[in-house]
Design a binder for these strands. Structure first.
Lengths: 189, 189
DNA sequence: TTTCAAATCTAGCGCTTGCTTGGTTTTTGG
DNA sequence: CCAAAAACCAAGCAAGCGCTAGATTTGAAA
């Protein structure tokens, strides 16, 4: 196998792993559980991944890539700070709640990553946060919001990320409703 | 041993366990690591706790009790909704960042609890959230904030809980600064 | 049809895990 | 000072863990 294999089969396996890691946590999910859910024997898993930790890394990486792509698309063509903020919040909630498995894993399980995997993922996360920071900086500079800019970013992302703890997809509120509500709460009616 | 032993020794052990669980996660922390850090042999651990999971439960329980106590104290004597909100936010950040170990564990590791432990802790959490809900309801009813009330509570607690991910105790901002900043962000200057 | 790599299986190794048991030391209350 | 209780230790068991090695099957290209 190649080190960073991106075959279709591998993507499928990663999605299955994401579900199990999300449901039971990384450490409690054994390679045998993963293999069972994938319909193969545990030994065969190591044809696709060098070790268990690599599966975890792949899950988180897929989630982050998807978040980045959707955020970029959402901002395309928008110039007004207020609209950009609201679009970014909608995009964030959209990935967060659609690719929920991967994102829950990313939020909960990064401590099980090797330093090497971690540094790759931290780079991705930093790039994503920079996107947010620019949008928030614009809101502050045009006087739409007041306050310490990095702090606002952290509060906003905290409020949004926390939704995975309580959001019910079968409920009445859509992710877009939530994004709108957050905008209103911080004065971006 | 009694089932819910609350001896001083046990409290010490729970605090040590909180540190290890916070640093490495519950599943990655072995009973041997715990025993080493406590200065005893791994077998002796089971004189104080029936099983490993009970240690986790005790860690979270201690954290929640402390949060509840501090919140009650903070609200005592305050009647103005705005002041009550800000006091509650200060209290929340104060426990969150002082008893950080226990609270990080509570946020990250509840999936490793048995159903029995979980139901006890969920009751405590619900009571705590009710405290927040009342304060927020007052703010909305007196026109200080606008929006869906449970949603505001969730956004606020999300923003606050997320601080454990990035807050640096050696930095320039105090927990009180953060509480103040959150208040300003949602229009409670 | 032959070839060859990718994908899978079979079988199990070496190690760690949570936890138990039975005995010893330390602490404490009368 | 002494007995009972609490705390601890030494030794190890049974189960499960991540992972490996070598053989076998599958599937597409030549």
């Amino acid at each position: 196998m190649t080190l960073t294999n991106n075959s279709k089969r591998r993507k499928e396996l990663v999605a299955i792993a994401a579900r199990l890691f999300c449901e039971q946590g990384y450490e409690r999910t054994t390679v045998r559980m993963l293999a069972d859910a994938m319909g193969i024997k545990s030994g065969s898993l190591f044809h696709h991944f060098n070790d268990k930790q690599e599966i975890l890394c792949a899950v988180i990486q897929d989630g982050m890539e998807s978040a980045m792509t959707i955020a970029d698309q959402a901002l395309e063509g928008l110039t007004q700070p207020k609209e950009r903020f609201k679009a970014l919040a909608r995009a964030h909630l959209s990935t967060l709640l659609n690719d929920r498995n991967a994102h829950v894993v990313a939020l909960y399980e990064w401590r099980s990553l090797t330093d090497e995997s971690l540094s790759v993922l931290i780079d991705m996360r930093d790039r994503y946060e920079q996107l947010w920071q620019q949008v928030i900086d614009d809101c502050v500079e045009t006087g739409l919001i007041k306050g310490d800019q990095p702090l606002i970013r952290r509060f906003a992302l905290g409020a949004l990320n926390w939704t995975v703890q309580w959001y019910d997809a079968d409920g009445e509120k859509t992710p877009d409703d939530l994004a709108q509500a957050l905008g209103e709460l911080i004065g971006l009616g």
